[in-house]
Design a protein around this nucleic acid. Sequence first.
RNA 1: GGAGAGAUUCCCGAGUGGUCAAAGGGGGCAGACUGUAAAUCUGUUGGCUAAGCCUUCGAAGGUUCAAAUCCUUCUCUCUCCA
Length: 406
Amino acid sequence: MNPALATLIERGFVQQCSNIEGLSDLMDKEPVTFYVGVDPTGPSLHIGHMVPFFAFRHMCNAGNIGIALLGGGTARIGDPSGKTEMRKILSYEDIDANAELFSAQIDKFVSFDGKYRFPDNNKNWLANLNYIEFLRDIGKHFSVNRMLTFEAYKQRLETGLSFIEFNYQLLQSYDFLQLYKRYGCRLQIGGDDQWGNIVAGIDLIRRIEGVEAFALTFPLVQTSDGKKMGKTEKGALFLNPEMVSPYDFFQYWRNVTDADVERFLLMFTFLSADECRKIAKGNINEAKEKLAYEVTAIIHGHEEAEKALAGAKAAFSGGGDKNAMPSVKLQLDRFEKGYPVLDLFVDAGLADSKSEARRLVQQGGAYVADKVWNDEKLSVGKDSLTEDNELILKAGKKRLVRVVVC
RNA sequence: GGAGAGAUUCCCGAGUGGUCAAAGGGGGCAGACUGUAAAUCUGUUGGCUAAGCCUUCGAAGGUUCAAAUCCUUCUCUCUCCA
């Protein structure tokens, strides 16, 4: 087995491959050009997008050539795979803006060099396609009968599938063909929900070019309790630090289920496989801390990871660095007059409404300076502040904020 | 184009004139137990100047003492036929 491929398998990346021996032989012979596609459907990548890019880096480290394909064209259509209903149609401007943001995030992660790792955008060849020509050249190779047997469509046959989405597969196949023609791209990697689309591309390349291309898919990452990976109560775990702070990002990994630690270390860090296994077998809480630190460092840099770690220490085990805790600024005169607790919790961002704050207090989940505050009518006065005019508020055991008074 | 069905709170889904801020489940939040884990159990889950008041059942009008529920128009979705 080719060593790069073996690494992917060992680290749990491989779900399905169209022809693993063939691919291994090819990779032994020469550097392989491969691609990962992402449709820029939102303002930031989230962790679910990242699995293929971790694999991307492993592949590139082994000397292969990777293309990050932004779906500036396909996002105009919307991939029905794995969706139960049609995605809302985005405006071209939004898609292009998203594509810029995605591209920058990917660049940060894989460091494009223009030669071995570079981006492209499928709107370059999709945006101005001629419909008739496309149907004659490409459409004739697709059998509707066969397409209907694909799992992705079967499901949607129940709930409804529009023609626009039904065409998505042709476009993705066409992408693969274009990348083969332009760069000699022979391999497409992606999440397992892309299997049908990728295989369709392989067929198209075989029919038109008479060349074997390959598919390699990764498991859709789920937490071991069956939830979708990276979903938090606030939504997806985005990479953009303004959407999910490095501290919250760190906390997500710190709170992963025991059973996921080893798997996640292997997939979302670049520590050696042996080391990952060793860490996961050791003290489970230290392993989680290591996982959280490593992933945060990879995504947000070591400095942010250090800060998140220090903040977590300050919040949970004393010591650490309280400057690194999430904090808000509030006015001193409010405390001088007596800050109504409910307002205080809302202003500190620990409750969305006063009713929520009230519930928190009534249920004994509101902590002011480490003491349970159980009277919703009382105000928090200046005397609750520390000598350097600070105050720690907690909502429940885990959500907390450092109030800095000024 | 024709014939039907439907739109309910974060999601699924009950409710067909007052007892409805709206059953049940999921999810979320809090508490207990713990290890910042899982599982389990309990409570809670529109807002507010809070024993009261205000806003919510696709949208706009109407009937009524009273509407998520009835009527009219509109918008959207789905199914079947062409």
